[in-house]
Amino acid sequence: YTAFGDLEVFLHGLGLEHMTDLLKERDITLRHLLTMREDEFTKNGITSKDQQKILAALKELQ
């Protein structure tokens, strides 16, 4: 049995499950992801397509 964390649930909701391992390897938490700047997305290997999905979701949360 494995409990999913906030990061996994957030990514799954956006259809971005493939990013879970990448972000965990880089010790990026959901809190960090929510406050990242555009250059940090790129530096951490997050594609512009995935970045757009994340940023759109963040706008909806605000």
Rank of each mutant, 00 (worst) to 15 (best):
Y1S: 10
Y1P: 10
T2F: 08
A3L: 08
F4T: 14
F4S: 14
F4A: 12
G5D: 12
G5M: 12
D6L: 00
L7S: 03
L7K: 01
L7A: 03
E8W: 03
E8A: 08
V9R: 15
F10P: 01
F10E: 02
L11P: 01
L11T: 03
L11S: 00
L11E: 00
H12F: 03
H12Y: 12
G13L: 03
L14P: 02
L14Y: 10
L14E: 06
G15Q: 06
G15E: 05
G15S: 04
G15Y: 01
L16W: 01
E17T: 14
E17Y: 08
H18I: 00
H18M: 05
M19N: 05
M19R: 04
D21T: 13
D21N: 09
D21R: 07
L22F: 11
L22P: 09
L22Q: 15
L22R: 14
L22Y: 13
L23T: 03
L23K: 02
K24D: 03
K24H: 06
R26N: 09
R26L: 00
R26V: 00
D27H: 11
I28W: 02
I28K: 01
T29W: 00
L30G: 02
R31S: 08
H32K: 14
H32M: 12
H32D: 15
L33D: 00
L33T: 00
L33C: 05
L34S: 13
M36H: 00
M36K: 00
R37G: 11
R37W: 01
R37N: 11
E38H: 06
D39V: 05
D39T: 12
D39M: 05
E40V: 02
T42V: 13
T42I: 09
T42W: 06
T42Q: 12
K43T: 10
K43Q: 09
N44T: 10
N44A: 14
N44S: 09
G45T: 03
G45D: 04
G45F: 00
I46R: 02
I46S: 02
S48K: 15
S48V: 12
S48D: 11
K49R: 11
D50V: 02
I54R: 03
L55C: 08
L55N: 14
A56N: 11
A56E: 10
A56T: 12
A56M: 11
A56W: 07
A57C: 06
L58K: 15
L58C: 11
K59I: 06
E60Q: 14
L61N: 14
L61M: 15
L61I: 12
Q62W: 03
Q62M: 04
Q62Y: 06
